[in-house]
Amino acid sequence: MGKLLEINNVSKFYGAYKALNDISISIDRGSIYGLLGPNGAGKTTLIRIINQITMPDSGSVILDGEPLRPVHIRDIGYLPEERGLYKTMKVGEQALYLAQLKGLSKNEAKQRLKYWFDRLDIGDWWNKNIQELSKGMAQKIQFVVTVLHSPKLLIFDEPFSGFDPINANLIKDEILQLREEGATIIFSTHRMESVEEMCDHIALIHKSNKILDGKLIDIKRAHKSNTFEIGLATENKDLTSAKLSEKYTLSKASFKSIYDELQFRIQIPENITPNQLIQELTSMGRLTHFVEVIPSANDIFIQNIQNN
């Protein structure tokens, strides 16, 4: 395994404005790394630094064991959030041009393009004008151009925007396939369900600072608060809830149920195990629902941003 990309203490100023403050991130080879943060947090700046579009004012970026150099442009594929194509060029011509800029020879670019165009079933677009394409079609071309030169590191900034659900799924599967083939992927998005689904690691950037990073599972573990969602059928709901409130912190729960039971969330101290809780609850009524509340990526995002 090992690290493919290491970002060490990177800072970036735009005039007096600090866009990135001492950011350190390391990304495992073959992982899908979610780069999260609210708008204007500094994600794009960080991505641009990795792409050598802008230079950091301090700190270093190590790709595959070497400090980042212009030659590494070949090793990176970047699908920016603000993306487009030359309107007046033909699809094939444009894909060839962009591929050659990434260092492929014309023949090799042609072969690979043919493979990808066939694979995504867009082979007959070669001679179309970009202006004739819909937004989703253009996005497909951009995706192909991004991955065409088989880079070690792929950076996708909001890759699913503009795709219908079917094509979004198609692209998602392609991304997962690329990971299988050994690519490392940085994934920046606001769609938390994709993060949940795809990312192994995440980093959360807020107001130019990294406030959280690590394995998604570890982060979830760290964020769980021993809270359970309970459904309890009792004779007197008010009495039961009053009794429990004396000992624990209760809050509202909202799950769908076929019963007319008492629904609540309960947070238990460290010294009480779930088994003990179940025993206590069953003595008070019939247990209809018992689930540990595991924070979603969305919860973690909101919680961390609001606390900072």
Binding site: P70, P80, E82, R83, G84, Y86, L101, V145
Partner: peptide
């Protein structure tokens, strides 16, 4: 301006100085 409005610039600039 065309490169800017069509948003192709960021792709280009990640390959070219």
């Amino acid at each position: 301006i065309e490169e800017k409005t069509s948003r192709v610039i960021e792709v280009i600039i990640s390959s070219v100085k």
